[in-house]
C-alpha cells in the first residue's frame, strides 16, 4: 500500500473540513476525489502533501508517518510526493526549465542550490520532461508568456522531476477550457500508465473523472460517502455526494 489515510480530522474555526476520512491507495492507481465545493477536497490534498497538519489522524506513505515527521525527516517524505495545483503555483518570471529544476532543490547541497547550479544531467532531464509534456519549444521561455494549459504542463513536468511515487493533482483542469482540460488529463493518464505512477486527483468534473480514473472517492461534508469503480457511480450515488440532483455539476 503506497498511501494510507487514517481517520483524518481537520477543522477551520467552526467549519469541519475533514471528519474521519479514511482510504488507501495501491501503487499504480489513478484515483479521483469528487465532491461539491467545500467538501474538503483541497484540504485533503494539503494534509496529504504536508502543507497543513491535521487535528487528528495520520497520513502514511509506504508505511512511514508523514504527520508524525518533523523538519528534515518530514521534508524527505514530502520529497516523494509531486503536486500539481489548480493555479499552477509557478514562478512566473523565470523560464519553464528553471521552474522544473526547482523540484531538484531538496536533493542538492546548500551552495549549488542557492546558486541554481543544477548541473548538466538535471538540466537535460528537465528538458526531456518538458519535451514529454509537449513543450520542447518553450524550454527557456519565461512562464509568464505561456497559456494556462501550457503552464499546467510545466507544473506537471515539475512534479515529475521529483520522480515521485505519488502525484497529487488539485483540480488540475479547473481553470482551463474543456478541450485543454481533456488534453491535460489524457497526458496525465498516459504518464501515469507508462511510469506506473500513483495519481490522486481532485476534480469538479465527474465526466472527466469517470473517463480517466480507475477508482473514484466521493467526499461530502468532510466524509467519504463513496469509494468504488467509475461504473458504480450511479445517479443515486451522485445525489448522495452532491445532495439534490440540481446541485450536480
Amino acid at each position: 500500500m503506497l498511501l494510507s489515510v487514517q481517520n483524518l480530522h481537520k477543522t477551520f474555526g467552526s467549519v469541519a473540513a475533514l471528519s474521519g476520512v479514511e482510504f488507501a491507495l495501491n501503487a499504480g492507481e489513478f484515483v479521483s476525489v469528487i465532491g461539491p465545493s467545500g467538501a474538503g477536497k483541497t484540504t485533503l490534498m494539503r494534509v496529504i502533501n504536508g502543507a497543513v497538519a491535521p487535528d487528528a489522524g495520520e497520513v502514511l506513505l509506504s508505511g512511514a508517518s508523514l504527520t508524525a515527521a518533523r523538519g528534515r525527516a518530514k521534508r524527505r517524505l514530502q520529497a516523494g510526493i509531486g503536486t500539481v495545483y489548480q493555479d499552477f503555483a509557478l514562478v512566473e518570471t523565470v523560464s519553464c526549465r528553471q521552474n522544473v529544476l526547482t523540484a531538484c532543490l531538496p536533493d542538492m547541497a546548500f551552495f549549488p542550490a542557492v546558486c541554481g547550479a543544477y548541473g548538466k544531467d538535471r538540466r537535460d532531464e528537465a528538458a526531456a520532461l518538458l519535451d514529454r509534456v509537449g513543450l520542447s519549444d518553450k524550454t527557456d521561455a519565461p512562464v509568464k508568456t505561456l497559456s494556462g494549459g501550457q503552464k499546467q504542463r510545466v507544473s506537471i513536468a515539475r512534479a515529475l522531476m521529483r520522480r515521485p511515487d505519488l502525484l497529487l493533482a488539485d483540480e488540475p483542469v479547473a481553470s482551463l477550457d474543456p478541450v485543454t482540460g481533456q488534453q491535460i488529463l489524457a497526458l496525465l493518464r498516459d504518464i501515469q500508465q507508462t511510469r506506473g505512477l500513483t495519481v490522486l486527483m481532485n476534480s469538479h468534473n465527474v465526466e472527466f473523472s469517470k473517463i480517466f480514473s480507475d477508482r473514484i472517492i466521493g467526499l461530502a461534508s468532510g466524509q467519504v460517502v463513496f469509494d468504488g469503480p467509475p461504473a458504480a457511480l450511479t445517479d443515486a450515488v451522485l445525489a448522495a455526494i452532491y445532495g439534490s440532483p440540481e446541485a450536480q455539476p
Binding site: R75, T83, Y85, A89, V91, V94, T102, L105, P106, G116
Partner: peptide
C-alpha cells in the same frame, strides 16, 4: 505571490532555498 513558495515547501525544499528560488526571481 506566495503560491510557488508554498509549492516548493510541499516538495520538501528548505525555507532559505524557497526564498531564493520562488521569492527573489519575482
Amino acid at each position: 505571490d506566495f503560491r510557488a513558495y508554498h509549492a516548493l515547501a510541499s516538495m520538501g525544499v528548505p525555507p532559505l532555498l524557497r526564498v531564493r528560488h520562488a521569492v527573489l526571481p519575482q
